[in-house]
Design a protein around this nucleic acid. Structure first.
Lengths: 231, 231
DNA sequence: TGTACATCAGTGAACGCGCGTTCACTGATGTAC
DNA sequence: TGTACATCAGTGAACGCGCGTTCACTGATGTAC
């Protein structure tokens, strides 16, 4: 039975992360607190170091988990829609992000909020970080195949053209520069809106922020995929 | 000379805020630190309490100042453009916000980043907070007068219609619901983009973020003020 | 113009609190022969 | 199958640090007569 200790270890590791998530939900991501976690586990604070080498290590694990959860939510939402319906796919993915963010605001802010002071994200976070974005890129790809044109045609600056070329090579995307820029803009607007809603920026201004987000997403979909001819 | 003590007091109050801003620029807005400020002033930490009743009071003063500075930057940029040229006005204001944010990232994040944990903004911040937004609303107003129509026509949810009506009454704006919603979306997208750029969300993805922002702003202007007939 | 009093800025010590991390240790669980 | 040894989880005490805030105080600056 080589697995007993290993299984207990895995369970405790998961429990530490779960408690950390719960505490972040109460005090904000910046207030991740090893001693408080240990207290809640009924352990002495130094015991945490058997599971994570440092506070930053735990933070990294939480960030990676969050990126993966968001990415998975996006992938699942995308997979549930007819692959040719690019607008529907965009909306499904946008709402999946919004729903996930509303359910787990602290985890969303851990990824897209003000960076935790003193924390520098290591390499391990890069791949999971792109997971959600890749879903959007695949939708852009299909849209390009259908000859989609943004409602307002952007002029893509030269420097950005190079960046887009690199992204295309990395991801195998076939979207042209204009669609890429419009898509990137929509991505930013989407996450900007989610962040503002979570941070209460619309408090005392807009009552039904959910309804507003729905309309924001529709606007964005219309702007990116203005002319589309599904096969 | 009743004013000597008062003037010294005003100067020291300003100096405290200046040091606080400088330290926030280094350690992030959440790490505002009364003792460090006192140390830098060569005072004992309790002396700060002659000028601000608490850490939260100092934070509030900084937030109010920042909102006013951003608002002023927006107003100045708007005033420098022909009032009938709504697109040019929008672009001028957008770039003013971007420039201000790049020059004072910590102050921008103080306003639009993740809220400082444990801090609740008091009433005093409400009026300054709307100052920049009012500039955008006045542009929308002029655009409405010129019969502007968004590139993608939004459907405005009922609940949001009520909120817009209240905003119109408060601000005397004459923009219709569709324009309001498109404007609000552009506002969110603008600030979302700025926040993401400041937080380094595009690091290793886009090299020339300045150029990208310029194009984002143009896209947004085109989306909100699609059909405009200047008088 | 001079004096008595009130106001106020700044001091220094203390309170109570909590954090991340290290280290030598004990005792239980696993492994190899 | 049993025993000797190695691995590992968790302990408890300590280090070094820093924070916001309170309070009784001193001494200088302003005010009123």
């Amino acid at each position: 039975m080589t697995g007993v200790r290993a299984r207990v270890r895995a369970e405790l590791t998961a429990e530490i992360k779960a408690i950390a998530r719960r505490q972040m939900a109460e005090d904000g991501p910046a207030n991740l607190n090893l001693r408080a976690i240990a207290r809640e586990l009924g352990m002495v604070s130094s015991a945490i170091y058997r599971y994570f080498a440092s506070r930053d290590d735990l933070l990294t694990a939480l960030i990676v988990d969050a990126y993966n959860a968001l990415g998975e939510a996006g992938e699942a939402a995308d997979a549930a829609v007819d692959p040719h319906e690019v607008r529907a796919r965009f909306l499904a993915v946008a709402h999946a992000a919004y729903r996930w963010a509303c359910e787990k605001p602290s985890q969303y802010l851990l990824l897209f909020g003000t960076p935790v002071p003193g924390y520098a994200a290591p390499q391990d976070t890069i791949v999971p970080a792109t997971r959600f974005t890749l879903v959007l890129l695949r939708i852009l790809d299909e849209a390009a195949r259908q000859g989609a044109v943004p409602a307002v045609r952007p002029t893509v600056p030269d420097g950005v053209r190079d960046d887009f070329r690199a992204m295309r090579e990395l991801t195998g995307s076939g979207a042209d520069d204009e669609l890429m820029l419009a898509g990137m803009q929509s991505w930013t607007a989407l996450f900007g809106a989610i962040g503002f809603i979570l941070n209460g920026q619309f408090r005392n201004v807009i009552g039904d922020v959910d309804a507003m987000f729905v309309e924001f997403a529709r606007l964005l979909a219309g702007q990116v995929f203005h002319e589309v001819d599904p096969a």
